[in-house]
């Protein structure tokens, strides 16, 4: 008798998942859609990135080739932008994490006894989502402009040099990126902290850990999955963003990020291969960084 077969689980745990043709019918339309409008575009980006101009053709006319020099060219031309994008994104992610953690901790742990208050505070966190991304960035531009009372006030208090600007500087771009992606950081942090068992903190202090020790040895490790997903949700869009860095928004000529050059190459100068090569580089760097980060922080089951 095959009794050894009983070693794994009971019938109840295994039963629900069935094999069926229905699964195929359910999956097919959506998967085909994603293949056609997500995978094929990625492939056509790769193809475009190797294209070369049509001899004697118009601007924006390219033919298929294997011109790998495109990659060398864009790195030489836009290396600064690529580096700047990741530097800004990393700083914005760190600032967003520092800003969000105490807030998420307050909402998720301290305010636990008042579910309605908790929910209202969450609404406040996501409230910026409900107003246009571009308008909120423009609002900051106006609030932090040279004529605004914030800047004039700081100058009056001699906290800022009289001829200094805020908008158009790297600091303004990083500020804008931080602000715009705070909700992406706060929400995943909240959802792991909300599930944190406070008895573990009590156990920590019971076992002679000082509050700071308990925080770094118990609370932070337990909220790691939230930190990881918050960091990813902030870093990825921040690295590819080009609104904040745009001259009409918070940036200036010296703050252009990779998104800005992709946009101008694709939509203005019609240099499609350069835009495509830059996109592939951006995507590749992000995937490598994300993989390394997820591996190192030990939450591989995140996907």
């Amino acid at each position: 008798m095959a009794f050894s077969a009983f070693a794994t689980g009971t019938a109840k745990e295994q039963a629900p998942r069935r094999k069926s043709k229905i699964a195929l019918l359910l999956l097919l339309p959506g998967i085909l859609y994603l293949m056609l409008f997500f995978l094929v575009p990625l492939v056509s980006l790769v193809i475009t990135s190797f294209q070369q101009p049509v001899p004697y053709g118009d601007i924006g006319e390219f033919q298929n080739a294997f011109k790998w020099e495109n990659y060398v060219d864009v790195v030489n031309t836009y290396g600064e932008h690529i580096f700047r994008s990741f530097a800004y994104a990393i700083l914005a992610t760190i600032f967003a994490l520092l800003f969000s953690y105490p807030l998420a901790y307050f909402i998720g742990v301290k305010a636990r006894r008042w579910p309605l208050l908790q929910n209202l505070m969450l609404v406040l966190v996501i409230a910026p989502f409900f107003i246009s991304f571009l308008l909120r960035t423009l609002a900051w531009k106006a609030i932090l402009s040279d004529e605004s009372f914030v800047v004039t006030g700081l100058k009056a208090l001699s906290l800022m040099a009289p001829d200094a600007h805020f908008t158009g500087t790297p600091a303004a771009v990083i500020f804008g990126l931080t602000y715009n992606f705070i909700p992406f950081m706060t929400l995943p942090l909240y959802s792991t902290l909300e599930r944190l068992d406070t008895r573990l903190l009590e156990a920590g202090s019971d076992l002679y850990a000082k509050p700071a020790m308990t925080f770094f040895k118990v609370t932070v490790p337990l909220s790691m999955s939230g930190i990881v997903s918050g960091v990813l949700l902030t870093f990825i869009p921040a690295a590819g963003d080009y609104i904040n860095a745009s001259r009409d928004f918070l940036g200036g000529t010296g703050t252009q990020m990779i998104g800005n050059v992709i946009e101008s190459n694709f939509l203005v100068t019609l240099n499609y291969p350069a835009a495509a090569a830059l996109s592939i580089i951006l995507m590749a760097v992000i995937l490598v960084m994300v993989t390394v980060y997820v591996k190192r922080s030990g939450t591989e089951d995140l996907l």
Binding site: A2, A5, F6, T8, G9, T10, A11, Q14, A15
Partner: peptide, 11 residues
């Protein structure tokens, strides 16, 4: 007799 993938529930 009932078999599930990986084990036999009823012999």
């Amino acid at each position: 007799k009932k078999r599930f993938p990986g084990f036999t529930a009823i012999e």
